[in-house]
């Protein structure tokens, strides 16, 4: 590593940051996650992304479920909705349908996404709800103090798998690719710049964008997913990866030993909002009698 030394002066940097403007996407409240948590990365990257996209705070809604992501909305200066365990996607879908002008960001962890909320995942994806789902995958339940999660590695000993986890972990990317998500990406909490880029792209994507964010749980996983381990494992998607090739994306998604970061898959498809507008247009153009009653 031959990083150049470049003296950075605090007040210059502060001015730069203030001028950059992403601080306005932060709330007043200090985030309460465990220090070192990748959620910080996600929260900050989101503010950077929102700022880059020039979105007005009032037009953004961040929706969370339960888990360590719960408090996420409290830490961004947008509208926020801290909902229930596993319900982030349907609530976010409701918010988006309730007001299409809003930019809706759903946030949650692997428990929220792939355990209790797994039933909602395919549907948000296949409906192509125009929103962004940032899934913070640390392979453990942090809020409840360290139980196994759907993405916990085989053999991982947690407080609920004291003898070892025997459940095959799910492959979130593979799931979403097969759920017909129109944007599937992966990022790593330890690479904030890349993460911010990915979140920016995910939000920019018109349709359902799913970004899996690999992160350690700094408090309850000292062995498995640590910054050190993950930092060594992650790599970039190879140049020339064809984002339009779902099968290629799936093949990449299966290379779990060295998770690749980047946009796996991307396509354009009618969004739920468009489908609904279509229905409205059709309905107003034709006189369809209601069924049954």
């Amino acid at each position: 590593m031959n990083e150049r030394v470049q003296p950075v002066y605090l007040e210059d940097k502060l001015e730069e940051i203030r001028e950059d403007g992403h601080l306005k996407y932060r709330s007043k409240s200090l985030p309460t996650w465990c220090p070192g948590c990748g959620y910080f990365s996600m929260a900050d990257a989101l503010t950077v992304a929102l700022n880059r996209l020039g979105l007005d705070n009032k037009d953004v809604v961040v929706v969370s479920g339960i888990g360590c992501a719960s408090r996420f909305p409290f830490f961004v200066n947008t509208y926020g909705f801290h909902t229930l365990h596993g319900r982030v996607l349907p609530v976010a879908t409701g918010v988006k349908i309730g007001n299409d002008a809003l930019t809706v960001i759903a946030v949650g962890g692997d428990g929220d996404a792939f355990a209790i909320g797994a039933g909602h995942l395919p549907h948000a994806a296949r409906r192509n709800v125009d929103m962004t789902y940032l899934v913070f995958d640390n392979g453990i339940y942090g809020l409840t103090k360290g139980q196994t999660s759907p993405t916990s590695a085989l053999g991982f000993k947690t407080s609920s798998t004291p003898y070892q986890n025997g459940d095959m972990p799910v492959n979130p990317l593979l799931m979403l690719l097969s759920y017909e998500a129109t944007w599937v990406g992966q990022a790593y909490a330890g690479r904030p710049h890349h993460l911010a880029d990915m979140i920016t792209q995910a939000i920019e994507h018109k349709g359902f964008s799913f970004l899996r964010i690999l992160s350690p749980c700094v408090t309850f996983d000292k062995t498995n997913n640590t910054y050190v381990n993950l930092g060594m494992k992650v790599r970039d998607l190879p140049e020339g990866h064809d984002r339009s090739d779902r099968l290629a994306a799936m093949a990449r998604a299966m290379e779990e030993d060295h998770p690749a970061l980047g946009v796996y898959f991307e396509e354009q498809r009618q969004t739920l909002g468009e489908v609904m507008q279509d229905a409205i247009d059709k309905a107003q153009g034709m006189n369809l009698a209601p069924k049954g009653v």
Binding site: V8, W33, P35, G36, C37, S41, D44, A45, H193
Partner: peptide, 17 residues
């Protein structure tokens, strides 16, 4: 000791320790 603000995720892990 300096924090590279561009790379800082404001996680406060440093503050913790």
């Amino acid at each position: 000791y300096k924090i590279d603000i561009d790379n800082c995720i404001y996680c406060r892990a440093c503050i913790e320790v």
